[in-house]
Amino acid sequence: MSSRHPAPDELLLDYAAGTLAAGPELAVALHVALDQDARRAVGRLGALAGAMLEGEPAAELDPGDAALARALAAIDSVPVEARSPSVQTIGHPVRRPGFDWAPPPLLRHLDLSATWRRAVGGFEEIRLSLPGDTHRVSLLRLAPGRGLPMHRHVGTEYTVVLQGGYTDSTGNYAVGDFAVGPGPEQHEPIADPGDPCIALIVLERPIVLTGPFGRWLNPLVRRGLI
Rank of each mutant, 00 (worst) to 15 (best):
M1W: 04
S2G: 05
S3I: 02
H5R: 09
P8N: 09
L13G: 09
L30M: 03
V32E: 08
A33T: 01
D35I: 03
D37V: 04
A38F: 01
A41R: 04
G43I: 05
R44K: 12
R44I: 12
A49K: 07
A51W: 03
E56D: 12
E60D: 11
L61H: 03
L61G: 03
P63G: 06
A66V: 10
A66W: 08
A73K: 07
A73E: 06
A73S: 08
A82Q: 07
S84Q: 13
H92A: 12
H92Y: 10
V94Q: 02
R96K: 14
F99M: 00
W101L: 00
A102Y: 01
P103W: 01
L106W: 01
H109S: 00
L110D: 00
L110K: 00
A114G: 04
W116M: 14
W116E: 14
W116Q: 14
E125T: 06
H135M: 12
R136M: 14
L142H: 04
L148P: 12
R152V: 15
V154H: 12
G155W: 15
Y158R: 15
V161S: 07
V161A: 09
L162N: 01
G164W: 02
G165R: 09
D168M: 08
N172A: 12
G176T: 11
D177C: 14
P182L: 15
G183S: 13
E185H: 15
E185F: 15
P189Q: 08
A191M: 09
A191Y: 06
P193G: 02
I198P: 04
E204M: 05
R205G: 14
R205S: 13
P219V: 14
R222K: 04
R223W: 03
